[in-house]
Design a protein around this nucleic acid. Structure first.
Lengths: 145, 145
DNA sequence: AAAGTAAAAGAGTTTTTAATCTTTTATTTT
DNA sequence: AAAATAAAAGATTAAAAACTCTTTTACTTT
C-alpha cells in the first residue's frame, strides 16, 4: 500500500520483537517468522539491516535472538520506514517529478503535501512499544488468520 | 511515492492529453512523451491500456492520436489509478495483512483509514480536466525541468 | 487504389524487488 | 575445550515491474 513489502515485514517484525522484549525475552528468527507470517530467510535479512542500523539489537549464541533495549524504546515506525524504504514517502513527488517543489509544483503537490504530512506525523508518533498492550489484549494483529 | 511509476506516467499523460483536447486537437505518442518526459514506447503501452478501458480515446491514421471525448471529461485520477494500480491503495492493509479489517485490525488500521480516505477523496474529486487552466497558466507542471 | 501515418498487439529485454541458500562468526552451555 | 546455538555475511535465484522492439491493423490523404 504505502510501503514496500520488505518494509511491511520489517514493521511487523519490530512490533513483534518489541512486544516480546517487554516480557524481557529475546526472540529468534524462527519464532518471529511464525509470529508474523513471513518467509524466515527473508525476515532474517531484513532484521540484519535494522540491527546494523541499531534500530533493534541482537545477540548470537544460545539464548540469543533479537530484542529492543532501553535506548530503542522510542524508535518510531518513521525510523523503520526511513531505514528500509528511504525517504521517498516523505519527500518524493506524487507524480514522479524529480524537481517538483512549491516553486514548480505538480498539479497534486499541495493536496499531496497535506496527506503526506499527516502520514509522516502518524508514523513519527508511533513508537514501536506503543502497540504492545493492544497486541497483548488481542485488540490488533500483526499476523495473518 | 503512492503510485507505481507506470501510474505516475499514466496520470501525467492523461492530464497532458486532456489539456490539448481542450484546444480540440489530438496528440501523438511522440508529442506526449516529450510533453511529460517519459520513455516513448513505455507510455505507448500504458495509453493502450487506458484506451482499451475507454478512459481516453484514440484514433489511428493521419491526424490521429489520443484525446478525451465529452464523456471522458469527468474521468477522475481515481479512475486512472484504479485502472493501472488496481485497488490496493484504496483497500489494501498498510502492513500487508490480507485479512486486515475493522474486526481484526492491524495496529495501524484506524489511523491509516483516515489517511487513505483523504487520499481517495482527493483522487475522486480530481477530474482530469480540472487542471487544464493552471497548466496553461504555468502554475503547475507535468514535465521535468 | 496507393502511400503514408499512427495506434494496437505481441514478444522480448533489463532492472529492481522479493525470497532463498550456504558458509562463517560469535556466544553460551556442558 | 567441545558441542550446540543463533545471528551475520555473502552469494544466488525467482518474480515482478519497468522499459524496448517489431510487426500488424486501421485509417486518411492524395
Amino acid at each position: 500500500m504505502f510501503f514496500s513489502k520488505t518494509c511491511e515485514y520489517a514493521i511487523r517484525a519490530v512490533l513483534y520483537i518489541a512486544q516480546k522484549s517487554e516480557e524481557g525475552r529475546k526472540v529468534g528468527i524462527r519464532e518471529i517468522a511464525v509470529g508474523i507470517d513471513s518467509p524466515e530467510p527473508f525476515i532474517a535479512k531484513i532484521l540484519q539491516v535494522l540491527s546494523k542500523k541499531n534500530l533493534i539489537q541482537s545477540a548470537k549464541g544460545p539464548n540469543g535472538g533479537f530484542y529492543v533495549d532501553k535506548g530503542s524504546r522510542d524508535t518510531t515506525l518513521a525510523d523503520i520506514v526511513e531505514a528500509i524504504d528511504g525517504d521517498r514517502l516523505f519527500v518524493g513527488c506524487g507524480l514522479g517529478l524529480s524537481n517538483c517543489s512549491s516553486a514548480k509544483p505538480c498539479p497534486l503537490h499541495t493536496e499531496f503535501q497535506v496527506i503526506r504530512d499527516k502520514l509522516a506525523a502518524t508514523l513519527r508518533a508511533a513508537t514501536i512499544i506503543r502497540f504492545n498492550d493492544e497486541l497483548n489484549l488481542g485488540l490488533s494483529y500483526i499476523k495473518e488468520r
